[in-house]
Design a protein around this nucleic acid. Structure first.
Lengths: 174, 174
DNA sequence: GGTGAAATTACGATGGC
DNA sequence: GCCATCGTAATTTCACC
């Protein structure tokens, strides 16, 4: 964590963050009401949280099916060689492909996991073929087509707090 | 897609969505400036897009390291039996576990992929052990610890448009 | 660090093009 | 479908506690 941790968060800050996480465009007046604070006090806290980058950004969520539904794919990827330069090349490649929305390096036998969005299976396969043709040293890949989305969400601040508390207990007990 | 597709989107709508996707808390006045529209015209379009649920929600992104960094895990899960009731039980279980932030049903040999956040490996393992103890009919599971996040982003409206266009070309050519 | 009131600016409805 | 106006409401500053 960067300079972010320099701020002490009290209950009010947590509630402020919780509300903004769920209602990113709520007016400051309504927000102040919600957390039982005067508008100006609320405003100052909000500014402080933004400046400290504890609030990183605000976004509208646009219906992803706006131009028709897309198919989601997961893939696991294993490289031929495992030097820093090999990883670097692969990572730079995926960063520039917009259809690849997520990429993680994994511990164990698989090097990378990627999430891909495409209109069709053949469009996805074209992306994979292009990747294989790009001399990135991909040894093997495994495609997992997503047949159903059961759950997708971000952790709320309350959940972050709960997980951390529970994890700390774990250390004491273990 | 629901009733959402009943609206024809022009260039101005796309730009409006693009701006709000990146700057979810921009004032309507600034938004209007940005897309070269009067405030009232901009306001009307924005309302229309919200009512049509093309804009689904607004959110503040809170620094997830606010209480210290969490470790991310991916897991693949295979059930013993594959009746609708087996899938239903598993899916209801993961829906109520907040540390599991994503869950997808996959085609092929693996039934489910989940994304889990935990403070420590042992906290993660406790979640898995609890899952195994819950009589969900889990046959096997594979844990993939995330060692590095290369990329995480949502698709922009422009990218959604591009993917769709490219996918349509694909159908014509193939 | 919190409040309340004042000046500035944004919002959202309405009527006209 | 876009623009201009206008009363109302929200925003942001500031002096004070």
């Amino acid at each position: 964590m960067q300079g972010a941790s320099r701020i002490r968060l009290d209950e009010i800050d947590i509630r402020l963050l919780s509300v903004l996480q769920r209602e990113g465009r709520i007016s400051k007046t309504d927000l102040a009401d919600r957390i039982n604070l005067s508008v100006s006090a609320c405003f100052e806290r909000m500014q402080k949280l933004e400046q400290a980058k504890l609030i990183q950004s605000y976004h509208a969520v646009v219906n992803p099916a706006i131009f028709g539904n897309l198919q989601m794919f997961h893939a696991h990827i294993i490289l031929k060689t495992h030097r820093a330069v090999d990883f670097g090349m692969f990572e730079n490649y995926v960063r520039q492909i917009s259809m690849i929305t997520e990429c993680y390096a994994l511990g164990g036998g698989v090097d990378y996991s990627i999430k891909v969005f495409a209109s069709t299976v053949s469009q996805y396969q074209r992306l994979i073929d292009d990747m294989l043709d790009a001399n990135l040293g991909v040894d093997r890949y495994f495609t997992y087509i997503v047949t159903k989305v059961i759950k997708v969400r971000d952790l709320t601040v309350t959940e972050l707090q709960d997980i951390r508390r529970d994890g700390d207990n774990d250390l004491l007990a273990g």
